[in-house]
């Protein structure tokens, strides 16, 4: 448990949480490992889980036409790669909409910690400190990703 706690403390999703709170989050989640090119989530599917990359790297791919301000090629397009400590699937956790992108593993042995939405919301109801802190960290992560995308537009598609 201590090792898992230390691993998850390397994700800013848990920034500001006490170790006991991180242990409560670990208790409601589970782990999964993927090989290179294996799809983890698929665009359009229902979204009910948040993913934290513990090891390896993933690639986020959006279908054509979903990023209107970025003129891309007419096929599905990789928009970013995410490494250890990063999260994905957070939009569905917040808005309950379908998956906005497909995410696939880039490397063999890519390992993710999976946080189910319903169990997470139940925990947030039990501890508003956990709920506020994690939601604030998700908001910061979304802001960071938006700033990354804006700078990418400036750098030239």
């Amino acid at each position: 448990m201590e090792e898992l706690t230390e691993l998850l403390k390397r994700s800013d999703l848990f920034c500001g949480l006490a170790e006991e709170d991180i242990r409560r989050l670990i208790a409601i989640g589970h782990w999964a490992t993927y090989n290179a090119d294996e799809t983890i989530i698929r665009e359009g599917d229902p979204s009910d889980e948040l993913y934290i990359i513990q090891k390896g790297m993933v690639e986020v791919v959006v279908p054509h036409g979903t990023v209107p301000d970025i003129p891309g090629p007419p096929e599905a397009t990789p928009v970013v790669r995410l490494g250890e400590g990063q999260i994905f699937g957070e939009m569905g956790l917040v808005d309950r909409g379908g998956r906005s992108a497909t995410v696939r593993a880039v490397m063999d042995g890519t390992t993710v910690f999976i946080l189910p939405r319903d169990a997470f919301y139940t925990l947030c109801d039990q501890s508003h400190t956990i709920g506020y802190t994690v939601m604030r960290n998700i908001a910061r992560d979304l802001s960071f990703k938006l700033r990354h995308r804006n700078l990418r537009v400036v750098a030239g598609w």
């Binding site: 986020v60 397009t77 490494g83 990063q86 960071f144 990418r152």
Partner: peptide
């Protein structure tokens, strides 16, 4: 300190990356 880095590649052919260092 953990450095969360947004890598953007000039020219846009590479999707860039977000990683911890």
């Amino acid at each position: 300190m953990i450095y969360k880095v947004s890598y953007v590649v000039l020219g846009g052919r590479h999707p860039g990356a977000i990683v911890n260092r």
